[in-house]
Design a protein around this nucleic acid. Sequence first.
DNA 1: TCCTCCCTGTTC
DNA 2: GAACAGGGAGGA
Length: 283
Amino acid sequence: MPELPEVETVARSLFPHVHNCVFESAKLLRPSTMHPASLPLDSLVGQKVVDLRRRGKLLLFELYPAEEFIGTAPDGLSMIVHLRMTGRILTCEANTEIGRHTRCVWNMRKPDSSPFQLFFDDTRTFGKIFIATEKLLTGWNFWRTLGPEPLELDPENFIPRLSGKRPIKTSLLDQSIIAGIGNIYADEALYASGIDPRRPSSSLTPDECGVLLGEIKKILTVAIANKGSSIRDYRDADGKAGKFQESFAVYGRGDKPCRRCGTVLLKARLGGRATVFCPHCQK
DNA sequence: TCCTCCCTGTTC
DNA sequence: GAACAGGGAGGA
């Protein structure tokens, strides 16, 4: 399930395929894939991809009208894609047959005029596409309240964000506190920090907050270097799996022995999510 | 602030 | 054939 490192990997691997390419047409196979506030899919026609980046777990295509559309097509559009659990963006040859889980197909033209397609495949249909003007984006509550990027965050700004009484694990999953962390990296970072995921966020000392932020950065950085974790469906834009999942210390290892001390790892449910931790190493 | 729902494939 | 996976919206 794509979290920050996986989305970063998708953005990096996809960008060379779409940079300066123009949307010619699009086909929506499942209407609920569009975010309710999105502009219609057709508004992409004539838009060129000038940049592709990640913000939290969101993929952000920055668009500008292609030369022949300047003055007629809107300026300042972006397309945000949230892959959620099972979303994938695949580059395909023109006229590729749609698959069972294809939700959207974009027909594109490269700078040399050759055609190709982008497929948005999403088995569990939780993924969303949001085509937005600047104004629509700022009106989107999730975007407006999205927390800071963990890799750009410093302890002085992290500590006050953990003032709530909720379990620390729940706070890490809250995208308005810190952006891009999901269930896997929350559990792994808490294990690496030796912090019990059930502890109230506000009970962490400033030192512990600093350790936690350091471990979050370390784990995300290593995961990005490993091109993410491939659990079940996740692949990058070239269809390649990541390999960070081979390094998991706790995620998916409930009832197994802790790699550090041998204690049986406990399972709990926090914020509605499966949580695994070591009762001996995490205090 | 917590719970339920959305959705489908995989595993038990 | 039920349990489970889970991010975020929306309601209690």
